[in-house]
């Protein structure tokens, strides 16, 4: 099985998220970076699939040169091939991103054969455009389903489970297929010491690609207006129960 996982490097914010002075990016002065959560799970799923089926997991990212860090992390948890498409540091719009990734996939497949499965995160944690995977799949002429929280490899292709509010929708996809994966499909492993050491030697291929800008242009980022929140303290112990139940009654949920 030949699997491709597309991942994005994103800041890892805690309780608060700030914007740089020019409003063009998240202020990462005091932040680390991570792989966008849905994609971290996509990578784990891909590694589990090749552990069962045999094969390779190529991990691709379009991002700043520093996204090498996320590719090395991928190497430490079981990725076998690594590709960086440098974007010069600033996010590209979804159309431009998808065009470059599709071009990269065509080149990788011309070289090493078709990917049986291409995985994206359902949406990136930061920009959340909800479309790059769908655009890439369409450019490659392959079926895609998003929101996937379960994958089984079958003789014909894949059975994919999509989580909805009341349960699961089941899809049966042929090979080759594309999926947008969601957190919850698995619990990603932590790197082992051996994995970490090996990841330092992982070879990262850089593909210089570009594509024309699309029709959406980001002007600036800003924080939502602070909701003037005054917190009414209902108590400091179990005796608060009476006041809480009064509140529930008032709200009509009792």
């Amino acid at each position: 099985m030949r699997v491709l996982v597309c991942v994005k490097r994103v800041p890892a914010p805690g309780a608060k998220i700030n914007v740089t002075g020019d409003g063009l990016a998240v202020d990462t002065t005091h932040l680390g970076f991570t792989t966008s959560p849905h994609e971290e799970c996509a990578l784990e799923e891909a590694v589990q699939i090749i552990e069962r089926e045999g094969g390779e997991v190529v991990v691709l990212t379009l991002g700043p040169a520093e996204a090498e860090e996320q590719l090395r992390y991928a190497a430490s948890v079981g990725g076998t091939g690594f590709v960086l498409i440098p974007n010069g540091g600033a996010d590209w719009d979804p159309q431009r991103t998808a065009s470059a990734i599709a071009d990269a996939i065509r080149a990788l497949e011309a070289d090493g054969g078709e990917f049986d499965l291409i995985m994206f995160g359902n949406e990136s944690a930061d920009a959340g455009g909800f479309q790059v995977g769908v655009r890439v799949a369409h450019k490659l002429g392959r079926p895609i389903v998003n929101g996937i929280k379960g994958i089984e490899v079958t003789p014909e292709g894949f059975t994919a489970h999509r989580a909805i509010d009341t349960g699961v929708e089941v899809y049966k996809l042929p090979k080759p297929a594309v999926m947008g994966v969601k957190e919850g499909i698995n619990l990603p492993r932590y790197p082992t010491m051996k994995g970490r050491l090996a990841s330092r030697k992982a070879e990262i291929a850089t593909m210089e690609l570009n594509a024309p800008a699309g029709g959406q242009a980001m002007l600036k980022l800003h924080r939502p207006p602070e909701q003037p929140s005054t917190t009414e303290i209902l108590g400091t112990g179990p005796e608060a129960a009476a006041a809480i139940v009064d509140l529930l009654d008032e709200l009509g949920v009792l």
Partner: peptide, 10 residues
């Protein structure tokens, strides 16, 4: 963006 933690003017 960020599920609503940040807003983007576009």
């Amino acid at each position: 963006q960020w599920g609503g933690s940040l807003l983007e003017d576009s």
